[in-house]
Each structure stands twice: as C-alpha cells, then as structure tokens.
Design a protein around this nucleic acid. Sequence first.
RNA 1: GGGGCCGUAGUCCAAUCGGCAGGAGACGCGUGACCUAGGAUCACGACAGUGUGGGUUCGAAUCCCACCGGCCCCA
Length: 833
Amino acid sequence: MEPKPCESDEEPMTGADENYDPRAIQDKWQARWEELNPFAASEDPADERPRKYALDMFPYPSGDLHMGHAEAFAIGDVVARYWFQRGYNVMHPIGWDSFGLPAENAAIKRDSHPAEWTYANIDTQADSFQRYATSFDWSRRLHTSDPDYYRWNQWLFLRFYERGLAYRKGGNVNWCPNDQTVLANEQVVAGHCERCGAPVEKRVLTQWYFKITEYADRLLADMAELEWPERVLLMQRNWIGRSEGADVAFQIEGRAEPVTVYTTRPDTLYGATFFVVAADAALADEICAPEQRAEFEAYRQAVQRESEVERLAADREKTGVFLGRYAINPVNGERMPVWASDYVLAEYGHGAIMAVPAHDQRDLDFARRFGLPVRVVVRTGDADPAESGVATAGEGELVNSGPLNGLSKSAAIPRITEVLEEKGLGKAAVNYRLRDWLISRQRFWGTPIPIIHCEACGEVPVPDDQLPVRLPDDLRGADLAPRGVSPLAAAAGWVNVDCPKCGAAAKRDTDTMDTFVDSSWYFLRYCSPGYTDGPFDVEQVRRWMPADQYTGGVEHAILHLLYSRFFTKVLYDMGMVDFTEPFTRLVNQGQVILNGSAMSKSTGNLVDLGEQIAEYGVDAVRLTMMFAGPPEDDIDWADLSPSGAVKFLARAHRVAAEVTSAPGADVATGDTELRKVTHRTIDEVTRLVEAHRYNVAIARMMELTSATRKTIDTGAGAGDPAVREAAETLAVMLSLVTPYTAEEMWERLGHDVPVAKAGWPAAEPALLVQESVTCVVQVAGKIRDRLEVSPDIAEDDLERLAVASEKVQVAMGGRGVRKIIVRAPKIVNIVPA
RNA sequence: GGGGCCGUAGUCCAAUCGGCAGGAGACGCGUGACCUAGGAUCACGACAGUGUGGGUUCGAAUCCCACCGGCCCCA
C-alpha cells in the first residue's frame, strides 16, 4: 500500500506507545498474510468440512472506500472470520459492480474511456480492502464490466427472452432528464431519480422489460423461509402490493366494450357516484366527447408536463375535466359522469376507477373540488364525509346498497363479488402494485442488449456463439454525452450488422441493461469465477449456495434484493439451481452518519476513512464500528471514540506481552477465578457473535481483559497459566474484529501464525458452574434481602430461608402471608395479607 | 391518510421467558497514585431510574391502551 502523501512516519499514531504501534504491526502482518493466504475457500470435493458462504454486497468503484464500506465490510468480515475459526470451509469473495453512470460521466468530463476511471478506482479499493484486513478469497475476484462477465448477462437475457420473460413494449415510462435515460419504477423514489435526485418525467417510449410480475406471488410466498429483518420483508411486501378485490365491468354509453375497473372495495359499489379515467390513458382520449375535446386536450398536455413529484404531492388540489360521457353502474343502473384526472394512474389497475367519495379520501377530495355527489353506503359511526371532508374507511353496516343493506363491510365484500359473478358483471380479482422491471437504458457503460433488429425478421437474438456483444472501444469523452438515445447509436461500425437469420442489413439494439441485471446473479458467479461454459458451474453452485449470510445496506431492500430473488426463481425454473431463495440470512447495517446527518461530500459533513485509519489504525476503526451499537443501528461517528478503541487494544496487547509462562503450560493448575471468567466469556461471546450482538461481545472481551490485568497486578501474577489462557482466548476472539492486534498478540504468546487458523476456544462446562448465586427476596415487590444460595436449591428450601430472614420479618411487620412466589434460585416474592 | 420501528445517566449503549437498573461495556468529566512527566498507566468517584399518563401482574424498561417525540415504508 502506498502511503498517503500527508502521512508522516515521524508522527506517532494516536494512542500508540513503544509496545503497541498499530502502524508497524499493520505493515508487518499485511505482507505476511499475503504469503500465508489463509482465506482461500477449498474446492476439494474430498474436503469434508461443512461449508459456509459469507457474502458482502459488492461495492461500486466510485473512488476509494468510505466510512459506510468500513462498517459493512467489518460486519461481514467478523462473520467470515468467526466461521473460519469454527473450522468451516468458508467462501468469502469480493468483486465490483463496475458498470454504471458515474464512470461514464467521469469519462465525459476527462475525455477518456469509462474503463480507465473504473479500473483505476477498483485498484484503489482493492488495495484499501487489503489494508483493511478483509478476509477475502481474492482468487474469486470479479468485475461486472469485464466481457467475461457481461457475456453471461447477455446469455441470461436470451434465456429470459426465450421464456417470454424479456419483452419489449411501448408505454409511459419514467425518464430522468438529468441522466437522459429511462428508469425502473424501483429507481423512482418519491418522484425523484434514485441516483441523481432530479424530478422524474414521463415519456412514451418502447423499452425492454423483465416480467417480474409473473413471479409476484412466489416472491411473496417464499419470504416465509427467509431469516431477514422484518422491515425489509415488510418493504418488499408493500412494494409488491398484493391486494384482493374485484374486477367490475362498467358500460360506457356509446361504447360497445365495457370498461373493467379494479376495486378493493366492491362492497361500496352502490356508493359510486362518478367514474375517473387516467388522463394519460388511451381510454380517455378515445371516449372524450367532441364538445369536451378542447378542454381535455389542454388538460392532458398540462398533465404530461408535470413531474411525478408534483403529481404525488399529498396536499395538492385535485384537478380534472369532465369527458362529456357517462358510465353505467352495473348494480343499480345509475348514470355516472366520466371524468379524466391525473390522480388515477394509467399504469395501475386498468387505468380507470369507480369513485366512491364517501369511503375513499382521494375520491372525496375530487368530489368536493368539483361538486360531485357523496353517498354514504357504510355506516361507520364517524362524521358524514360530505360534511367533515374525511372519508370513512372502517368497518360498519351497509346502507343505501339494495341487497347488501344490513351486512357488515367484511360480509358484503364476498356477497357482492358473488352477485357480480352470477350476473357476469365482474369477478374476484387480485391486483399487484409491482410493475414489470424496465431494464433498458440509453447509456453507454453497461451490457449491450444482445438483440438485432431486422426489417424483415423483426427482433433477432444474437446467437449464443457470437456472445459477448462487446462494447465498442472507440467511443470516449464527448461521444458519450447523453442525448436521449444511447451513445451506441452513433457507433455506425458497431450498430450495422447482418441479420443472423436472413443476412440482410440490420441494426443492433443500442440500449444497455440496467446495472441491477449485473448484480442479480454475481453471487452465483463467485462459486466458479472463471467458468466458460455458462454463467456458473451448476455443481459448484449446488455446493455453496444459498449464501448463509448476506451483509449490506438497507437501501437495497427493494431494488437489488427483489431482483436477485426474481433471478433465482427464474434460474430454478430453468433447472440451473436447486434452491429458490439466494440469501438465507440478511444483515442490514445502519449508516455511518456525522453529527446527526448523513455524510456528504457536497455539504462537507464528512469523515475520511483513510484519515481515520492513518490516525488510529485499521483495528481501532474496525473496533469502533463494531462496538458502537447493534449492527442495524445508524452510528454517529461524532458519538464514538476511536482513541478509546486504541487504548483498549493497547491494554489487551500489553496483557499478552506480559505473559511469562511457556506455550502449552498446564492451565488446569492456573488461577480458578480467572479461568472461570475466561470460560464464561467464551460461552457468552460465542452466543453473542452467533446472534450478531457484536457490541456486547466486545464488552465481554473488555471485561476479560480487565480481569486478566487484575490477576497480573494483584493476583496470581503474570506467570500463572490462567493468565496465558485468558490472553490466548482474547487473541482468538479479537482476531474477528481486530486482526492485526490479535496476530501480534498471538505471535508474542509464542504461537504459529496466523491466529485466523487458531480455532475457536471451547468453554469447559465445569468452569461455568457457579457455586452460589444471589437470590433476591422481595416483600410486596420491594427488595428486602439478598441470600447467597446454591444454584440448584429446592423451591421449598429457598422459601423457608426467605421467610426466616430477619429483614423480611421486619418488612412484614407481623402481617400474615397471603402468597409466596418462588422462582429458584433467583427470586422470592412474599405478598403480605 | 394507512402500516411499521424506536425513546434507559451529559453521550453511545447493556439488561434470555416479565424477575436485583447498587446500569454490563465504553466516551466524556472529576479525584488520587505512579512515573518514562504523557494525548501514558493504574485505582477510585459523581451524575440516572427507563418519554408521559393509565392498565394487566406477586412483580413491568420488557406485555396492553392512549398521548408526546424521532425514524422508515406505502399512499
């Protein structure tokens, strides 16, 4: 690792002393570990050790690693190192998600090729990972922008295409005016581009989609088997947005075909007083009456100009135009005016709704704005919506609803659905919020879509043996500037090809794939990174997958994690994998923030990882991250004390350095009190690490360090074998979090390195047994006495002891006993009469 | 508007099932010892009573209800 120019060897690191110099041991061990290569996963089929797959969300190479990476990769590394110590055959790979817009923007600015920026950053990050002591198997390293990788993106696209899961269609799409490309629904956050924050616009374009909606039910159902944070599952559930309701057919006067409307509240059908069509839906244009045409056109143009943000704003006044037409309510024959509005979305449901203003807030807002009637059909006991302006959505008794009158809401829903089905006017229906995944992008630095457009043959897949369709390498700098169509369109020599089917002149598809395609299966590629006969070796994947733990940020809760689940299910259906979920256990670490808000370059609210490491050392930074709190919580760097971490490490290191007994000394002869602390620590830390309670595990290691210190100074002394045992235990446990310091301790204790292979200590059950425990005696819930008792004392013995206590007698003040609760050996509660 | 998560010392955080908050651990602060005189080390100490109000219970930080405050998802 090259030292940063600002670093000076003269300046001692914070907290360093002559015995513990973090920088010196970093340099020493980094070089040694490269020789030892302790973390290569074994592919030997004869290797009987059970396997574990520790997976980290791979980074995007935007400059050097930052504080967020430091936290996420510290967590993943602790897990992997724990499994190594437990003797598993561990795979802990790393790679780079190296296609994407920032590289392209950098190339435009510097008049270079995106690859230059990308691969330079990857090298920087790889060096930083080495220094950060991550336990990766470097032989599995991959980059999604390598042709050897994206070739298989194209191959998978073609398999999806064959199965009808990749298709092209025209329609309204999300358009980022800044990045000059379309976006998937998942990439629009509150109306803004997820990447650059620009307000998203709508455009009508023909684009490529993956049919993720076909998997909606399975994506929902299979969540049951996942050990994921509840909130992530909830987010995915919300995103998929399954709802049960009914499709109802409405006749429109003067139109032959009825229009189908989806509703989750068919019970309110008698309360429908008007009908709304999405202003940008084809239906609105079609049915608009001639006398309303001019008004409608003006409105539609206004709607098309507005951004998603404006459209979604909650407090915004409703807008719309009457279309001059009427729909017929199928249950009561009422004529309902048909309006066009932007609060109904063309892409959802069928692009039209029945409006029930009494029981839907948006419908009510619209009705009040345009003076449309409000009819209550569910009596909920709340105020009249027409008066209060608040729609009522709760349970209640049906009124004004013909045959439904008197039924409850929940009874009315199946009843009306039945009626509709009998009359052929509708049927029960399930609707999803989830849309198909729009995967084409009008940008350069991504995987070319392997399709050729031929005038005669139409869409023609590029034959497998012609993959990869490589990106042209002669485009650079200004050639890549966004212009609304893919820069690839300008590469004539690349675009113009012969049709693989008929040989006539044809053109390549010029769009590239969403980079989320790349990341939807990279974890499979790690299992056989050099494989050339397919995206992955099916046999290897069977051995390693699914990943036992996946560590990364919650920002991927619906994007990457949903797409990867979808890919896995498709591959399962293709018979390429034998599991349906890719990640068994998921850990979402919180963010590293500063002074209460997110770190950001633009506001200068930033802590530089390299500087922190230069000041405190890798181990102290890792320890600070892991000790700060539960991994899923945000951690505020301003609240933390990396110098405190250095101090503790120096303390632990000193304890190991002071040990004077020889390796292999007979611990059985050692100080029993310290041995008990050591073994209790082993027992607790093991449990805590398994449960991801790293901050508490570290607190226990600190206690053991203090206990050892005390034994050396005022107890059995540095030569006692129990001190050696404690120091060795500390070194191994610390090796998960602070590998450099642990290695140095291990060496000083006279052992063969690396400590990573020392093996996890086992607690001796005999040393976990306590001779006596404190029993609390309460009178009426107040603590009156404490008794030292045997841990296996019988309940009636304990009760006798408690009642006999003098302090208890005083507290009872002569009152009789009403009740005694005994929970041996911890507590006795005496309730006086 | 609907749904979810969370409120413990000045700060970050602990507390299997409801069972000792003499708060596990740490930061910061203070006092003392020691010395290599430091941004070192060791020892000791102070500050709190679980956001508020009810309820259930022998017993509530933990369970239930309402409210206040903060965060997240969907609209």
